[in-house]
């Protein structure tokens, strides 16, 4: 991508704060995907660095199915481009016993234990002298709101 190229002009001041941009440029040239890449750059809401980074983030996101060491880059088809989903959170819940569950959530090693305690245990008739108390899903909803 030459410096006279509009996307190249946008890219030059960006490389210091977004090192991946240089790699993307090389890959885009190699695989002749300059149109999609330029679209990501020029489709930004403005020439502000954050907006350009957002455009690049969308560009990278459209290629999330490619393994890092995969040499051939799949060109985003129209379905990918139109996908409104920005993130998919995948969670696995295993029921252990009674109110106790194991939750496997993204970016966390091992399970998060779920259960009942205090007034919630009382509401469900669970004796925490018999069943270990754990944080409730409701506590996590409150934490999510507060967080």
């Amino acid at each position: 991508m030459s410096s006279s190229d509009p996307s190249g002009l946008l890219l030059e001041p960006l490389i210091s704060t977004f090192p991946l941009a240089g790699d993307l440029t090389e890959r885009a040239e190699t695989y002749r995907e300059t149109f999609a890449f330029q679209e990501a750059l020029l489709g930004a809401k403005s020439d502000h660095v954050l907006d350009i980074k957002s455009g690049l983030g969308d560009y990278v996101g459209s290629r999330r199915h490619c393994a890092p060491d995969q040499k051939e880059i799949r060109v985003a088809d129209s379905k990918d481009t139109n996908d409104p989903v920005a993130y998919r959170s995948t969670v696995r819940i295993e029921r252990v016993k009674g109110p106790i569950r194991r939750a496997y959530v993204p970016a966390h090693d091992g399970p998060v234990m779920l259960g009942v305690h205090s007034e919630v245990a009382e509401h469900y008739g669970v004796d925490n002298n018999v069943v270990d108390p754990y944080t409730t899903t409701l506590d996590y909803v409150v934490a999510a709101v507060a967080g």
Binding site: V85, A86, Y87, S89, T90, V91, R92, I93
Partner: peptide
């Protein structure tokens, strides 16, 4: 068990 996907 359950496997869930939340879409944002």
């Amino acid at each position: 068990f359950s496997e869930s996907v939340g879409e944002l």
